[in-house]
Amino acid sequence: MISVVIPALNEQDTVADVVALALRSPAQEVIVIDADSTDATAQRAADAGARVVNWRDAHPLPPQKGKGESLWRGVQVARGDVVVFLDADLSQVHPEIVSMLAQPFADPKVQLVKANYARPMADGTEGGRVTALLARPLLGLCVPELAHVRQPLGGEYAIRRDVALDLCFVSDYGVEVALLIDVARAFGPEAIVEVEAGVRTHRNRSLQELEHTATQVAAAILSRAGHPGISLEQREPARAIEPNE
């Protein structure tokens, strides 16, 4: 069974299209984790056919701020053997992205599947500035066995739910690269597969927002690499947390 989890915060303009794309896939359930949106995100996701879960209802623990927290809570409520994550702000993505991310799990050795894609910006230049200028170089220095991964920060990827339940989820935007490193260390880099997914576009963020994201990503990589003095806000493995804690 495949579950699609879409973390969302104030993405009313795009979330319905992302839900519709997921519903056209082989997924058996599509879940939007709404992080207390103040716009019409939750209603539009529900109208499009998603199961909308407010992040406070996904687990009794009070939510921590950040995207990773929504992903962690999505894993709690998902029922599929494979969980496919999609960002809610996508304006262009391969129409078969869910199937493409799920197919490699036919190989029992595969634990994590990442999408690789071009990321053009509105002016035609290549996006993914934090990825190109920080994440890939820092992975090359600190975790060289993952230097080949082209989109380590991309929000379109899939993981076996049993594996996700046993991993720590960094609460902020460092979540994707931390999961990448953790899976590689637990199962070996060969347990991670990339699929070619064409072109992806989403809402481009300001340099101020990207500076904040870059700091979180750098902290996640350096912390996982054993750099002293860096602490991360993260959730412990879900199996280790009792629902009533």
Results as ranks from 00 to 15, higher is better:
residue 58 A to K: 00
residue 180 L to C: 06
residue 71 L to C: 15
residue 218 A to W: 01
residue 9 L to T: 04
residue 136 R to W: 03
residue 235 R to F: 10
residue 166 D to E: 15
residue 141 L to V: 11
residue 181 I to T: 07
residue 51 R to P: 00
residue 230 I to K: 09
residue 74 G to S: 11
residue 59 H to V: 11
residue 61 L to F: 05
residue 144 P to R: 10
residue 15 V to P: 00
residue 231 S to C: 09
residue 137 P to C: 13
residue 89 D to A: 11
residue 238 A to L: 14
residue 95 P to K: 07
residue 28 Q to R: 15
residue 100 M to K: 14
residue 139 L to A: 10
residue 93 V to M: 08
residue 38 T to V: 14
residue 167 L to W: 00
residue 86 L to S: 04
residue 114 K to Q: 13
residue 158 A to W: 03
residue 67 K to G: 03
residue 48 A to F: 06
residue 192 I to Y: 03
residue 90 L to V: 06
residue 56 R to G: 12
residue 205 R to T: 13
residue 236 E to R: 12
residue 27 A to N: 10
residue 182 D to P: 00
residue 16 A to S: 15
residue 41 T to G: 05
residue 4 V to F: 04
residue 63 P to H: 10
residue 228 P to K: 11
residue 23 L to E: 08
residue 70 S to F: 02
residue 181 I to R: 00
residue 183 V to N: 06
residue 2 I to S: 03
residue 83 V to F: 02
residue 208 Q to L: 14
residue 219 A to T: 02
residue 58 A to Y: 02
residue 177 V to C: 09
residue 182 D to H: 05
residue 203 R to S: 11
residue 190 E to C: 04
residue 207 L to G: 07
residue 141 L to R: 12
residue 74 G to A: 12
residue 158 A to L: 05
residue 159 I to S: 04
residue 38 T to Y: 01
residue 196 E to G: 10
residue 147 A to S: 15
